[in-house]
Each structure stands twice: as structure tokens, then as C-alpha cells.
């Protein structure tokens, strides 16, 4: 359980909390008070960064693998490890997703 540690703060104990969309920590009058929660501020910054990296990666992936984003990469040559370029392009994004998920797991593991 996360608890606000600032003694002067009472807002986060109300039943009508608003929540930060990225870190899931409560917002105090619309202002993020993530930094007041355990774990440390640095860890939370890292979580926020990791979440944004993942969001950017998967949006880019959706664009790169559908039309019209795929058009510049939709070619047979050059072959990559023996397979057509566009096939390798799809595989590369899946492998990249594994790496991004690995980073997320490292950051978010409790």
C-alpha cells in the first residue's frame, strides 16, 4: 500500500482521489504528489520514464506495421538472415517489444 508521507497533506486520504494516469499515484488537487510516496522520487521518475518509453514504442510499432506507415519498408530486398526485408521488419519489432517489456519489468518489479 502506498501512503502519503507528508504530515501536512490530508487530501490524499479522501475517498475521492484522482489518479495520475502514468504512475497511478494520486493527484492532490490536480497536482501530482507521486514524489511524496514510497518508493523514492528517483524510482518514480524512472517508472514514469519507462511508461512513456513503452507508450512511444508501441504507438510507433502500430504505425510502422500498418498502412501507410509500412509502405517505406514493404519490400522484398535486401534479404535479412535469408528472409524478405518486410518479414524481418515485423520480427524485429516483436524482438524490440521483448526488450521494452524487459525494461518495464525491471523498473516496475515490486
Amino acid at each position: 500500500m502506498q501512503r502519503c508521507r507528508r504530515s501536512s497533506c490530508t487530501g490524499c486520504r479522501t475517498a475521492t482521489l484522482q489518479l495520475c494516469a502514468i504512475t497511478s499515484a494520486p493527484l492532490h488537487h490536480g497536482v501530482s504528489i507521486c514524489a511524496m510516496f514510497e518508493p523514492s522520487q528517483r524510482s518514480l521518475r524512472l517508472k514514469r520514464t519507462a511508461a512513456w518509453v513503452a507508450i512511444v514504442y508501441f504507438v510507433a510499432m502500430a504505425i510502422a506495421l500498418t498502412f501507410p506507415g509500412i509502405i517505406p519498408f514493404n519490400m522484398i530486398r535486401p534479404f535479412v538472415f535469408g528472409v524478405p526485408f518486410v518479414f524481418a521488419w515485423y520480427i524485429a519489432w516483436v524482438v524490440g517489444a521483448l526488450c521494452v517489456f524487459g525494461f518495464l519489468d525491471k523498473v516496475f518489479r515490486e
Binding site: 500500500m1 486520504r13 475517498a15 475521492t16 497511478s24 499515484a25
Partner: peptide, 10 residues
Amino acid sequence: RGVDTAASTP
């Protein structure tokens, strides 16, 4: 989001 509201007082 993992916030325990059971202990919270409105």
C-alpha cells in the same frame, strides 16, 4: 491503482 481506501475517512 493499489491505493487502500478502506482506511480512508471521507
